[in-house]
Write a protein that binds this DNA or RNA. Structure first.
Lengths: 223, 223, 223, 223
DNA sequence: TATGAATGAGTATTCATTCAT
DNA sequence: GATGAATGAATACTCATTCAT
């Protein structure tokens, strides 16, 4: 479609790649600026400067400021979820669940810091229905994926007898994630809560009681 | 409303009361307006009109817009916590805990709706250190009170043998509140989560395992 | 409604007068700036500076830039029409008509110069339906008034036998005004047409033939 | 459309023709877009898309946006005048004049609609001296041609005794055109004036009185 | 020549805050 | 204390024009 200099063979992939790279750079810049001056304080001028493009170029990629900021946020959430699940290695369901929760726990300080920025998006989406639906549906997708990943692990553990099956896997998965989110939320205003140890303590207490097969507890109970 | 009948000697106390009433009216107006147009969308003009005072008067009570909005938010949190604890009646610790959690559960839709507004405050506090400390310290106080109230109930139940004592009361109280907050947070973008039934299910599953004394579970387990 | 300094009797008329004066100053400033830099080139900053008020004050009086500029234009049209009719003195209908047309003719250069600015409003009203209706309905009112004023004069002249009655007064009034407007329009791009003499020549030729009673022409025609 | 069949030797004339055709297509596109979104609302992007060329190509033909729009306008005026005069058929001067005026009258609604767009050009030429001179001199040429065409017809009619010669042909021609232009101008804000009947009535009343030779009126006047 | 991605100057409007009355 | 008119800083977005390919 675009004319090429004579003699140059170009299937368009490099142009496409370059454009994609520029898009990433812009999203990255948006996140950087948001982290620096807050979501509300982010100005298009500053994002453009950070991404080393002109303001006009920003608008070639994103219709409105809101679309850009929300896209940056969504990319961040997606990247986070993917990386997390990729890092879970091999092992029994119980080991993999423990690993997942431990990864989550260790990420608590990081996620907590990001949350301070991300919560500011609520100010934006409150007055912008389009932005709201964009962000919220992305969040729902991410949370759904996380929830299903967890529930599946739990169900596998129950099937092979590693976990007790007296609790519904879906309910437990949701409870674990809510517990985590609640901890993250509260850490935004009570920084001492960003301590992974507190969370680890809560999760493990919950898990031991819930997931150990009945047999492992029975001996102490008949005594 | 504020003017004195002629001939009445004002000893200063009624003037003070009137001033206090006006302050309350302003805070109330701030909350009303925030609920209507969002935190970011609240304008001083509108709050003044809602409180039936002039804009100048607003500045006699609060230095800056931020101070007013944060004060309104803090008052709302305080009022909520007080009302909640006042509504818990008499009974055994187990009954009172169940009652408290049920009240919380029933409030989920209301609190969820308020949360949408309150989260918008993060946009404001991100760029305003003074406002941040004001809001966050108030939140810490509220959450501390709630947490201690819960932990005390649990500890009482453990002392009288109503609850199992294998779990640390403080850890469990925090876990319960985190679970609740996580549910509230997630309900802001996934409205179907504002459903109290889901929460009730999670809380009860958690409580039964955690808090019933071992003996009450043993019979079914030896069968 | 507004509190007064103690002891000052104020019926509010001076405040109202002051406000009205400020409004006039703003409209005047708008017209001055438009005449200087054109309708499209007028910036709110410049108008505010010219009126010696702040930009915010401009918006206390007029909702939008368009409203301000159109209001300035309408005021100018109204003022022009009123002044014109006020200047027509006493005399027979024929004398008064001649006087009115002579005044119009002498105003040709002035009106022509204003027209260059006023036509620019078409660029604005083309994209702003509200502004369009505001301006156009004002124009219709002004033109209607002018047309009726003329038609009445002609009819009076016909009734007292000063004018021939073979032509319908309304049609002739409209024709006279269209002739004038056409001349004004063409003078915007052909400045030599802003010469009153050309117009006077056309109007008089038209009038003599049209309006002289048949008798006054008959003698030369039977000869 | 523009590419040559392989093997065809291009002597340059077809390339020139092709280039001329592209220029016409661009001008046509400019007029189409202006008619659709107004003069001020026309964007180079849209014109390029309408003409199926790139934006860069627009600038190969016209230095600036103004030059393009003005050129489109001028072409429209020229085309209109030429078409009009070509449509006047054979007959006596009186018949041909009547035909010309009738054509003009029937075009009133069309010209009136175009005028709404064309007047918007005043906003542009007000701030652009070069554009102003380009447009205005083209308008003067067009109007001069029209005026001379009319004056010539009248003079011919006078010479052969079909018209009265008591009125100067040039003055009358100008008066007729001014009357027409005034009607067009006023129809832009008073749409009911775009009605050809009103104009016809005015023109005919004027013409009968003016142009009928004295003899043809005398009989009725001596009766 | 043709293309179209990149550029960046230019401006209306809002609304917290002040202060004369 | 109360009022509310006046103030002016701050910022998203458009679109004509350029120029590397």
């Amino acid at each position: 479609m675009a004319s090429q200099p004579p003699g140059v063979l170009d299937d368009g992939s490099s142009a496409r790649a370059s454009r994609e790279a520029k898009r990433s750079r812009i999203l990255e810049a948006a996140r950087t600026v948001c982290a620096r001056v807050g979501f509300e304080g982010a100005r298009m001028d500053e994002i453009a400067a950070e991404a080393r493009v002109s303001k006009g170029t920003l608008y070639n990629f994103f219709d409105r400021k809101e679309a850009l900021l929300i896209a940056g946020l969504v990319a961040q959430y997606q990247q986070g979820t993917e990386e997390l699940q990729d890092q879970v290695g091999e092992g029994t369901p119980g080991e993999r669940l423990a690993q997942y929760l431990e990864l989550l726990t260790e990420l608590l300080p990081t996620i907590s810091a990001e949350m301070m920025v991300n919560l500011q998006a609520w100010g934006l989406v409150a007055v912008d229905e389009v932005a709201r639906e964009q962000l919220f549906s992305a969040l729902r997708v991410q949370y759904q994926a996380q929830s299903e990943f967890l529930a599946k692990l739990i169900r596998q553990g129950q099937e092979c007898g590693e976990f007790a099956d007296e609790v519904e896997a879906g309910v437990l998965a949701e409870a674990l994630l809510s517990l985590f989110d609640g901890q993250v939320y509260r850490s935004t205003f009570a920084p001492e809560r960003a301590n992974p140890d507190t969370l680890r303590e809560q999760l493990q207490a919950l898990l031991e009681l819930k997931l150990l097969p009945r047999q492992s507890r029975a001996p102490s109970e008949v005594s």
